[in-house]
Simulated assay, not measured.
Amino acid sequence: MGAEVIYGKQLATEIREDMKQEAAELREKGIIPGLTVVLIGDDPASLSYVRGKQKASEKIGLASNLIELPENTSEVELLDLIGQLNQDGEVHGILVQLPLPDHIDDQKVIEAIEPQKDVDGFHPINIGRMMTGQDTFYPCTPYGILVMLKRARIALEGRHVVIIGRSNLVGKPVGQLLLNEHATVTHCHSRTENLQHHTRHADIVIVAVGKPAFITGDDIKEGAVVIDVGVNRVDGKLTGDVDFDSVKEKASHVTPVPKGVGPMTITMLLSNTIQAAKSIHNVT
Rank of each mutant, 00 (worst) to 15 (best):
G223M: 11
L269T: 07
T273K: 10
T284F: 01
S271V: 03
K237R: 15
P256E: 11
L270Q: 10
G236P: 05
D228M: 05
K250T: 04
S279Y: 09
L270F: 08
D235R: 05
D218C: 00
N272Q: 06
G230N: 08
P256C: 13
T255H: 09
A276C: 11
V242R: 09
D219E: 02
F244I: 11
D219T: 00
L269F: 09
V283W: 03
K221I: 01
T284R: 09
G262M: 12
S246W: 11
K248Q: 14
I274V: 14
F244D: 14
S271N: 11
D235F: 02
H253F: 15
A213E: 13
A276W: 12
M268P: 06
D243L: 12
T267E: 07
D241F: 05
G240C: 07
I227R: 03
A277W: 08
S271I: 08
K221C: 03
V225T: 15
D243T: 12
M268D: 05
G260E: 06
D243S: 15
T216H: 04
K237P: 07
H253W: 15
T255S: 12
G260N: 07
K237F: 03
G260A: 06
T255Y: 11
T216Y: 00
I215Q: 03
T239R: 13
G223T: 13
N282D: 15
V229G: 02
I280T: 10
V225M: 03
D219P: 00
T273Q: 09
A213Y: 04
P212C: 00
T255M: 14
I266R: 08
F214K: 02
G217A: 05
D235L: 00
A251R: 08
F214A: 01
T267G: 03
T265M: 10
R233I: 02
I220P: 02
K221S: 08
A213F: 02
P212L: 00
T216M: 02
K259E: 12
I215Y: 02
G236R: 07
P263F: 10
A277M: 12
V225I: 13
T284L: 08
D245K: 15
S271C: 05
S246A: 13
I220L: 07
T239Y: 05
I215K: 01
V234H: 03
A224C: 01
D245Y: 13
V257L: 13
N232H: 06
A224H: 01
A224M: 05
K259W: 10
M264V: 06
I220D: 04
S252R: 13
K259Y: 11
